[in-house]
Write a protein that binds this DNA or RNA. Structure first.
Lengths: 332, 332
DNA sequence: TGGAGCAACTAGAGCGCTCTAGTCGCGCAA
DNA sequence: TTGCGCGACTAGAGCGCTCTAGTTGCTCCA
């Protein structure tokens, strides 16, 4: 910086002014400084700049390495953070790097706020953290001081169930998400959906976040034999995809023999050969809302209690009318 | 820090010593300082510490958000960086955040080295970058000053081809990776493999990195009708999975009608219901090697010209003997 | 008994920025 | 003419650490 200042014939302070893009330098000088910087291949040191600055304008993001939907969210977070003048610092969670470890590095970086994607931290831990700095939990509902940005999971499953009911399904299973973020709400939505459709039979099969759990749920499903449901709503797309894979290998046709609806609308769901009917979580809007919430907290404007984004049903080719049954001999 | 020092009744320097874990403090004081820090909920500021330090011991990693195998690599990088005393700073590449933008933020962070996963930067750009700081390109071979850590892609495809040949296949297609990192080498390996097996017929079908490209390759494959190969080697696992999905939907059985081998050995490949035979890239060793290379460059020890890790064939259930042919009426 | 040697600890100058509180010169209204 | 306001620019004190070059008080050996 010293060198750039010397070369441009100005003070260090002026160089700082130019690089921060604030007022206080004539266009001519501005250009001269930029030219000098270019010649010297100078680039401001973000560490030092963050240190000196009163506000670091940095938001830390914890995400699960390998979670497909988190990737979509990251993309949106990068875009909106940039637009709002924030820097993003990532901290990944892996099987041997716990979420608290990830959070700790963010705290040590002195981020101004933390955005936690699909956090699995205990509610108490999250609340304690929120006492130190603004925390927004994305995808997971948490009570307390923690801001929440999520999809209306319950409504999502109601949408899924309603869609299946409308197609004529009367026996619909849920591939459950266990303790995953949003799973409880989706379970609730599933039940509400069944009730609204006239007390349909309930069947909750343990599932999970990945294709693996979807596959084992499928095994359980297949073992039901003749008393199998004609449709399933899965905890998420990956689970649905694993399920479909297995039932197809067992000779069932999707959607002819069994209809499947997913959740998330990950990129793969839209691939033409997949064509998964699913409940779409809008990663773009979720990311935007997370950044907006952070910004509001940080600038004093009180954010709403929680941002709940409406899901949207995307009908593709994995759902259809149920196979013929005795009770409906007319069709086909 | 000041507060902690005061509370523990020592100087700031001593607090620094304790937190860096270096010699120069008695066990008693160490404990006292730690206790004071705990009470005050103090945590050293990494930005400031990096600033003051002569070496930042920070390695920047660019990765592609959403690339499944990059997730596995990140996990290994975190582990080994930590073990070697380095901090990892992530910078994600998305459709609207280019790789150069990702690299720029890492440079501005004053990382000591950059690890680029599956970089698609021009060789010249990479070389220029390597002039500024150590750069290790993981998964992609680059000439010049850039250190490379990769799997022996060519050998990998030879392994795949040899396996298929051994099973009796005589017509093996390649689902190509186009311009992706490693694709050229794999293509070469495929051709070498065919030659070694006695000048087998070559068929390169355009593929790519994701299921989508695998699916379209499958369409092309199916259109071949009777003159279809009996086996395919895919650019990677996701491509293979997309391919399998589509050929199965078309009524072909895998492996009975067509054998498929992938590349990478992503987590999904090992799921029992998938059982993809694949060429395993060892994410664990690749990550370890990348960190080792960085460390060697940084400590002056000259690293080898390039670390090429041998791939390993993992035989699962997506490959089998080719279907009966006229020329071999005895079998079955 | 007088250092040498060592472990434990401290003072204070950086690190590369930011930002407040200026200075300086110039045009313009009173 | 005075003086005020303003744009352009600068000096220098931080920010929260690290780290070198000390100082202090021991122990231990010749």
């Amino acid at each position: 910086m010293e060198d750039v200042a010397a070369r441009a014939g100005v003070s260090r302070a002026l160089v700082s002014i130019v690089f921060r893009g604030v007022a206080g330098a004539s266009d001519a000088t501005r250009e001269r400084v930029l030219a000098a910087a270019r010649e010297l291949d100078y680039r401001p040191d973000t560490r030092a700049s963050r240190l000196g600055r009163s506000r670091t304008r940095t938001v830390g993001v914890t995400f699960s390495v390998g979670a497909t939907f988190h990737g979509d969210l990251l993309q949106s977070l990068y875009t909106h953070a940039d637009a709002a003048g924030y820097e993003v610092v990532l901290s990944g969670v892996t099987p041997d790097r716990t979420e608290s470890a990830a959070v700790d590095t963010l705290l040590a970086e002195r981020c101004e706020a933390i955005v936690a994607l699909g956090s699995t931290l205990a509610a108490g831990t999250l609340a304690r953290l929120a006492g130190q700095l603004p925390v927004v939990s994305v995808l997971r509902a948490v009570s307390g001081d923690v801001d929440v940005v999520r999809t209306d999971d319950a409504a999502g499953l109601q949408l899924a169930v309603a869609h299946l009911v409308e197609l004529g399904h009367e026996h619909i299973a849920l591939l459950d998400g266990g303790r995953a973020a949003g799973a409880a709400e989706r379970r609730r939505g599933y039940r509400t959906g069944l009730r609204r459709a006239g007390e349909l039979r309930e069947l909750v099969i343990p599932g999970g976040l990945t294709e693996l759990e979807g596959a084992s749920a499928a095994t359980e499903f297949l073992a039901l034999g003749r008393s199998r449901p004609t449709a399933v709503a899965a905890f998420n797309d990956r689970c649905a995809l694993g399920f479909i894979d297995v039932v197809r290998q067992a000779g069932l046709r999707v959607p002819h023999d069994v209809s499947v609806v997913g959740f998330d609308d990950i990129r793969q769901a839209a691939y033409p050969h997949v064509g998964l009917t699913t409940v779409r979580q809008d990663a773009e809007r979720l990311g935007a809302a997370a950044i907006r919430t952070v910004d509001e907290r940080l600038t004093g404007a009180a954010p709403g209690p929680a941002t709940v984004i409406d899901p949207e049903l995307v009908v593709r080719t994995s759902t259809a009318r149920p196979p013929n049954r005795a009770k409906d001999p007319s069709s086909r």
